[in-house]
Design a protein around this nucleic acid. Sequence first.
DNA 1: GTTTAGTCTACAGATTTGGTAGATTTTTGA
DNA 2: TCAAAAATCTACCAAATCTGTAGACTAAAC
Lengths: 153, 153
Amino acid sequence: MISKKTKYGLKALIYLARQNEQGPILIADLARDENIPKKFLEAILLALKNSGILQSRKGKGGGYYLGRSPKLITMGQAIRVMEGPLAPVPCVSETAYAECTECGNEYTCGIRLVMKDVRDAIAQILDNTTLADVLDRIDHAERSENNVIDFCI
Amino acid sequence: MISKKTKYGLKALIYLARQNEQGPILIADLARDENIPKKFLEAILLALKNSGILQSRKGKGGGYYLGRSPKLITMGQAIRVMEGPLAPVPCVSETAYAECTECGNEYTCGIRLVMKDVRDAIAQILDNTTLADVLDRIDHAERSENNVIDFCI
DNA sequence: GTTTAGTCTACAGATTTGGTAGATTTTTGA
DNA sequence: TCAAAAATCTACCAAATCTGTAGACTAAAC
């Protein structure tokens, strides 16, 4: 299960993507609109900034905004910043490989053999889904929902 | 990342599957051979027993053994016992659905739309990989490894 | 030079994780 | 029937992580 931190961060990114190119957004506004504790959100946005996904401006007229086009920011990149590697075990991580002290022979570890497939499946999805894709899917879902309502009426 | 508890549990299951139909295995032997803290392992095996994956006998000649054929125990079943639902967010879990208080409209929540795909990809693998499959893959990996060594010599 | 708004440091309660200790129950078999 | 074997139950504990808060500090704009 992903942490609240990650959920908050993803919600913030989607919020910022939706208002992209409308200038910097205040932490306070984002926190209020998305129901996220402001101080907690500050730390999350800072981490996303330090990873290059977001940029910020201080002072009056400042705030946070996407560091690049929503088409170039993937869910995988964002989740790795907040949640750590996508891999279920460190020994199959591509971005943060580490030995599993538990398994004697990494090459023949049964857990590793299966978890490698799981990691690849997760990465396949999250590294190929951009913020722009997410906005599209939301729009599409909203349109379908409206159609259903129209149909009911 | 999966917890040590889950790793220990999976190692224990693979160990028990390998010696299936050779009578009950002692917790102490399993703990020693797989380098798992005995008392911790006790709790894990008990949980696996309560879920029906394992069975046990008390007293002399007792121990733990698989509750059914390795072909009928999937990684998904085992992981759910120790780690909880496979889904990255509760609102896309098939086996332990729960509302995400964070997202207003579940139908149009961007995070949910993506995480649904992730859950399905994970479940597709883990619910279709049995302990028997894992043993096969380990055997196969060991044979390939030996071939590589032969080749090098 | 005052206001605005992000940044840094520190802390703290709650929960989860990983692990230990010891008493209890059940079963076997002598 | 009694002793040994082995799982089970209850309780506890330290460390880490998660979630959240408080306040001082820095940079930019007007």
